[in-house]
Design a binder for these strands. Structure first.
Lengths: 248, 248
DNA sequence: ACAAAAGTGTTTTTTATACACCCATGC
DNA sequence: GCATGGGTGTATAAAAAACACTTTTGT
């Protein structure tokens, strides 16, 4: 029965063994040091093979009963204490051979990495040093060679951060409740670069959009005229949601 | 030794069992029927439990030695023949309990779905009917209830499609090599809705940007003045890459 | 001749850009 | 009083938006 035989073969081809995965989460956690105008990323020193003593993105493997996003929040909370943060899924890297453990220790198990991208407020972020693991904010302009494909993941996260700042109001998730317009401008300058509107125009545009409300409270930063504290008004922003809008 | 004991306990807490995963890929494949001004998505009828006889996104499980992206292309090629397409990773859905198979048949294995989003040219897309599996283009405005969390994935893909059209030149990946400005306009209208510039302004803006070159060739579509065929000039577009740019 | 589709032009309004300048404070 | 940072205004250029109009075809 050639027909039947053919079907069997086709079925066999269609049912090559499925890959078994362990799923890891790697976080690209950014912050902006406005005092020194630097964009920073959180790195930890690896304590085990592979890539022992390499800097890497803080990551973990997903446990039973834990959602991917839970794992992302867990590893973040293990490394850093923050009040405000913005976190979103970045990309899933899953080619075979991206993790050297696939060759040796395992029985054909693949390692897949779901990366998350986070932005936290530098001034209030508290690194959790456990006395063993090295942990540090690194300027993204002076990165060391990282473990695994983490340089690639980081580069992808950096691109996403810039895009998000340009098109979405994520800056306000990481600024304090109230902030000066200069705080906001500095944040944009540090991440995007100096190649956009000057402060005066930036200011005028943002204010005209109408979702920044002046609290009337003034703060003085050393010399100079005191600045007004502004507040992001989520309700006033609502109409702009899902509309193309460029902040820079 | 209380110190050592404490360390042991901490280690135990930190090493709850890892989850074991099977990784699936689900494709949200869109096309635009310009003749009827409809946005379509490709659905297949499930042939097995769970969700037997439910419509679902075309998907597959990742096999040994296969990258995630390879699996996405494989399942796409199994269902449809196309010349041009745009494909990118969408999102990874991985909460526990998103797949009912986790409860019964498996030994604690989790199912994770890496979704991909694709845009293909409707006119030249050829569905591959194998005589068994139902397969169809569904208008996104009249979707049935889908298997798993596929309605959610689809909604997410739809949002991404709109954003991509607004900010990126993906329309040209799915239009034929040469196209009329009206073809382009229809594509935008169908996906985004009628709420953007009229044809005249759309046209003026796109032409001024300078990355559409007139081939000089004219085509006639029934009555009316013949239209010029244009061509996307990737080189002329290069300077706009990575710059905020809004097409609509 | 006339409807239909393509393409051009014009007018008005809104934004962007580049500045110059005024304001309030610390020292 | 003057340097410093905050804030306002203005002149010019560019772009968006609305819409009227011309051109070229099929019937």
């Amino acid at each position: 029965m050639p027909g039947r035989n053919h079907k069997k073969i086709a079925a066999a081809v269609n049912q090559q063994p499925l890959a078994d995965f362990k799923v890891g989460v790697d976080n690209v956690i950014f912050s902006v040091d406005t005092a020194q105008n630097r964009l920073l990323v959180l790195l930890v020193m690896r304590q085990q093979e592979p890539f022992l003593n390499y800097w890497s993105l803080p990551g973990t493997l997903v446990r039973q009963g834990e959602s991917i996003e839970d794992a992302a929040y867990r590893i973040l909370a293990e490394k850093i204490r923050v009040k405000n943060l913005y976190l979103e899924q970045l990309y899933t890297f899953g080619g075979p051979k991206r993790d050297p453990r696939e060759d040796c220790e395992s029985y054909g198990v693949r390692y897949l990495s779901v990366s998350y991208f986070a932005l936290v407020r530098f001034e209030e972020a508290e690194l959790i040093a456990d006395g063993v693991t090295g942990i540090a904010w690194y300027p993204v302009k002076q990165l060391p060679q990282l473990a695994f494909d983490h340089n690639q993941i980081l580069a992808y996260g950096h691109r996403r951060l810039r895009n998000k700042l340009e098109y979405s109001p994520i800056a306000f998730e990481v600024l304090p409740e109230t902030f000066t317009l200069n705080d906001l401008y500095q944040l944009y300058t540090t991440v995007i670069g100096e190649h956009f509107s000057d402060y005066s125009n930036f200011r005028a545009r943002l204010l005209k959009l109408g979702f920044l409300s002046d609290t009337g409270i003034k703060v003085s930063r050393g010399a100079g005229r005191p600045a007004s504290l502004y507040k992001f008004d989520a309700e006033a922003f609502a109409p702009f949601k899902d509309k193309p809008l460029v902040f820079i």
